[in-house]
Design a protein around this nucleic acid. Structure first.
Length: 541
RNA sequence: GCGCCCGUAGCUCAGCGGAUUAGAGUAUUGGCCUCCGAAGCCAAGGGUCGUGGGUUCGAAUCCCGCCGGGCGCGCCA
């Protein structure tokens, strides 16, 4: 059976090409909230009115006459055809058999419902977290982990081949500070005392590490031990959070393999760099930056963004044509710089490479007050704190249920509340409720009589299930997992409403089978969506 | 000062390639369990979409100014 939405769109496109051959408007088909407006709606007639200098309703009538027979010809059965509403909207209401098709799709496709298979998958990469091993992961890293992992899952759902990557600096000045701090602790010094390193790390974890140091004079051993210790701890946190990386990329390898030096040499060769005041500068202003940037300091060391550019060259050379970096908004100035640095190499890397998803800060509220300090880390709230307080599923769902660039307040008390107030449990509860129905002894049916699902709530649920593939396609395109979280809430709400209004396990066997099929399809869709967000779909709660 | 982001119901947030009556959760109020899980449902009240202009037949959505908040403006990473 052809997808009515696709047919509707294709036929509209054909008609629009005839109406405005020069530059045809692309029709946007939306699914109206108000059921009176049918299953699909478009405002092309209104958009076209200006361009053609005709009244929108006239255009709508023209389109209506042209489209209706074409739809019928292609097997789309409607209720009342294409109707015109308001100033010139075209609304299409399809008959109930095709409206129920998504139930069959969800049942037959199972875990793959909503996913796309690509003949030639693109090799794409998502880089996220990338915390330096100088302390425990904080809430911001948690947001990156939740966001990055969900974005990666979304891209996978669209048939791409995704690599999750974690990049970290294992050898820079920050690591030196870490080593000095541990050393000072091992020698019995406390933060702030005379002899404590400037800008040293003061968290309790430094003391924990220092207790394992045998020789406080062997700074190299201390450094290795501290890095290994914190890496292990970060890995444990990520594992508890359910996030796995395919590649850990070490900044030090960029130096040892000569990749940093190569980048600088290419800039010099292309005439994109110049010497001034003993330093080497890159002409980033050629690529939209507001001033040129130092790349090699007068002391001979490179500034941080040189290895960053070298790292992105490595991504390009490893074949990643689409790369997404998930970082905090405090990094937004690096976007221009990294892209400029890549352009100046003249390697044919596209201007917008790579993509960035920047998230703003998360404030943590608990007991009506903002929490700023973690006992362990000292200066910030850790991801581990959050998981301990509210559990992995709630942390994941909360951190991903807002637009990345909106600042938001994580309310620990709300996330903890295992009841009405919590959207995570609300969605999970819908899943568990359906499981409970099936636990009464029925198996999800293979076939059912579609004519029996003719209630308004049933048809609406079917339409909601039909939306799912579009929702994740758009969320993947826009790198916006929060759309999935909102969708799941709506689907769960519609199910709860239905469940309260109608009995599933009715006497009539045929009707029972049909309703069980609908339930199974909802359950499958909930499970698929939750899985994209890294949230479990429990059978019991 | 400059650049980027944000300002929608008491609170937390969707919507923002313009369009059919501004949405949800939470909080408040009132209903619904002899019946598949009440971690649920039904209903009510609550918004000059920061503000002032502009474009448009039509603006929360696009453009400009202003106000308020965040972040960034290092030969730090």
């Amino acid at each position: 059976m052809p997808d009515p939405k696709d047919v509707f769109k294709e036929e509209l496109e054909g008609e629009l090409r005839k109406l405005a051959p020069g530059n045809p408007t692309e029709p946007h088909i939306e699914r109206p909230k108000n059921p009176e407006h049918g299953d699909f709606s478009t405002n092309v007639a209104l958009q076209l009115a200006k361009q053609l200098g005709r009244k929108p309703r006239e255009i709508a009538e023209h389109l209506q006459k042209a489209i209706e027979p074409a739809l019928i010809k292609r097997g789309v059965t409607t209720q009342g055809g294409v109707s015109i509403a308001g100033p010139g909207f075209l609304n299409l209401k399809i008959s109930s058999a095709p409206r129920l098709q998504p139930i069959k799709d969800a049942l037959s496709q199972g875990k793959n419902y909503g996913r796309t298979v690509k003949a030639t998958p693109q090799s794409v990469q998502v880089e996220f977290v990338s915390a330096n091993p100088t302390g425990p992961l904080h809430v911001g890293h948690g947001r990156q982990a939740a966001l990055g992992d969900a974005i990666a899952a979304l891209l996978e759902s669209q048939g791409e081949q995704v690599t999750r990557e974690f990049y970290y600096n294992d050898a820079g000045a920050q690591i030196d500070k870490l080593a000095w701090s541990v050393q000072a602790r091992a020698r019995g010094l406390k933060p702030g005392q005379p002899g404590w390193p400037e800008e040293g790390y003061a968290g309790e974890y430094i003391e924990d590490i220092s207790k394992e140091i045998q020789n406080a004079d062997d700074l190299d051993a201390i450094r290795r031990h501290a890095v290994a210790y914190l890496r292990k701890e970060q890995d444990a946190d990520l594992q508890a959070f359910g996030v796995k990386f395919d590649v850990y990329y070490l900044e030090s390898s960029l130096y040892s393999e000569g990749k940093v030096a190569n980048v600088v040499a290419l800039w010099e060769k292309n005439g994109k760099s110049y010497e001034n005041e003993g330093a080497l500068w890159l002409r980033t202003t050629d690529y939209g930056d507001d001033k040129d940037r130092v790349v090699r300091k007068s002391d001979g060391g490179y500034t941080y963004f040189v290895p960053d550019v070298a790292y992105h060259v490595s991504k390009w050379q490893r074949g990643f044509r689409k790369v997404t970096n998930v970082q905090g908004t405090d990094h937004h100035s690096t976007i221009t710089r990294v892209r400029a640095g890549l352009q100046a190499l003249g390697m044919g890397i596209p201007e917008g490479y790579p993509d960035y998803v920047l998230h703003s800060l998360v404030r943590v509220m608990r007991g009506g007050e903002e929490v700023k300090i973690s006992k362990r880390a000292g200066a910030y709230v850790t991801l581990r704190d959050l998981i301990d307080w509210v559990g992995r599923d709630a942390v994941r769902f909360f951190l991903v249920s807002r637009k990345a660039d909106s600042e938001f307040v994580f309310d620990v008390d709300l996330a903890r509340e295992k009841s009405l107030e919590n959207p995570v449990y609300y969605v999970q509860y819908a899943h568990a409720r359906i499981c409970a129905v099936f636990a009464q002894g029925s198996a999800p049916p293979d076939a059912f009589d579609a004519d029996l699902l003719n209630g308004e709530k049933e048809l609406q649920l079917a339409s909601k299930i039909a939306e799912y593939p579009d929702v994740i396609a758009v969320a993947a395109k826009e790198l916006a997992p929060h759309a999935v979280a909102f969708y799941l809430r709506e689907l769960a709400a519609q199910f709860h409403s239905y469940y309260n209004a109608e009995r599933i396990l009715v006497e009539d066997a045929a009707l029972r089978t049909a309703r069980l099929a609908l339930c199974a399809a909802v359950r499958q869709t909930l499970a698929n969506g939750l899985s994209l967000l890294g949230v479990s779909a429990p059978e019991k709660m």
